[in-house]
Computed example of a mutant assay.
Amino acid sequence: MTTSQFSVDGKTAVVTGSSSGIGRAIVERFADDGANVVVTSRSLENVEPVAEEIDAHEGGGALAVECDVTDREAVERLLTETVDAFGSVDVLINNAGASFQAPPAEISENGWKTIVDINLHGTMHCTQVIGGHMRENGGGRIVNVASVAGQRGSRSMSHYGAAKAGVINYTTSVAADWAADDVWVNCIAPGLVATEGVRSQMGVEEDDDAIDRTRADRTIGRPEEVADLAQFLSSPASSYVVGETYTIKGTPRLE
């Protein structure tokens, strides 16, 4: 059996929000497979250690770039620095996001705009700028990270759910428009994943190291499990998958 169709070796991948959690798991996985990775978040001091750790091991190279995805000019600089370092961009993972819990009646206009700006507008900025480069240079892969909250809603997360629902619909729409340019656009909608953000906001105490990947009956995952799916969607193995949203949330809970 061959596994080469799942490889991202030799590709260059930009992963937003990759200083920790799911984003960090993705850059580490891709680099281990031989990809060059761009580690980016709003704080350079948070991404530099990640890039340095990746560079210390065999595999693809790593570049740390500070980028606020809500700032169009910052995203354009991100593209320029990536192309200067690696020559092109083959994969974009739109992972940068933010959330907080609040009842619908208590969400301020500023709070609403902040969450929509980071999760939805940030995805649009990166897709237009970096996806535009892909369209002009032979195509590429874009994977947007949404949430199950964008599929079915979530208590005290109406602002976040609305933004992620927008990401899911945006994925389908852009995929249809850009398929002719050989740009594959797909989406991942994770449920609970054992990241620091989930632990701090939702009171989940389970550490990712304690989660047994060999067990089917669970409703919390590890960041590496999302990275597995991101690699599939970034590789030739997903060549017939366009405009889809993959839910990754463990065991169904039926009423």
Rank of each mutant, 00 (worst) to 15 (best):
S154H: 09
T123W: 08
F30V: 00
N110R: 11
Y240M: 13
L254E: 14
N137I: 10
F6L: 09
T80P: 06
G34T: 09
L254K: 14
G250L: 14
I248C: 08
D9R: 15
S43P: 08
R152K: 14
A105G: 14
D55L: 14
D84A: 13
L120Y: 03
A179D: 09
E255H: 14
A216Q: 06
F86R: 04
N95A: 11
V39W: 01
G17Q: 05
D209L: 08
D68K: 01
V83Q: 07
E224R: 08
S88T: 15
V39C: 03
N94W: 06
A237F: 07
G111C: 10
R29A: 15
L44F: 11
K164G: 04
V174N: 08
E28V: 07
D207I: 06
A25Q: 01
G17Y: 00
M124F: 14
M134W: 03
G166P: 02
E196H: 07
A13V: 07
K11D: 07
A62V: 06
D55I: 09
Q101W: 06
D71T: 05
N110H: 09
M157H: 10
R72L: 15
S200K: 10
D181R: 04
L44V: 13
V116H: 07
V174E: 13
L92F: 05
P252A: 05
F30L: 10
I168K: 01
V241Q: 14
V47I: 03
T245G: 13
E76H: 11
T70Y: 02
D181H: 04
N119R: 07
H159Y: 04
G60S: 13
R213W: 07
I107G: 10
G132N: 01
G34Y: 04
H121E: 14
K249Y: 14
A64V: 02
D33A: 12
A85L: 12
V226D: 01
K164N: 15
V91W: 06
S235I: 04
V8H: 01
V143T: 03
D208W: 06
D84W: 09
A35D: 02
A189W: 00
N137Q: 03
V39E: 13
R141A: 12
S7Y: 01
D33F: 08
K11Q: 13
L229C: 12
V91P: 03
D90T: 04
G61C: 13
G139K: 06
K249L: 15
Y170P: 15
T219C: 13
S19K: 03
A25Y: 02
V145H: 00
S158L: 06
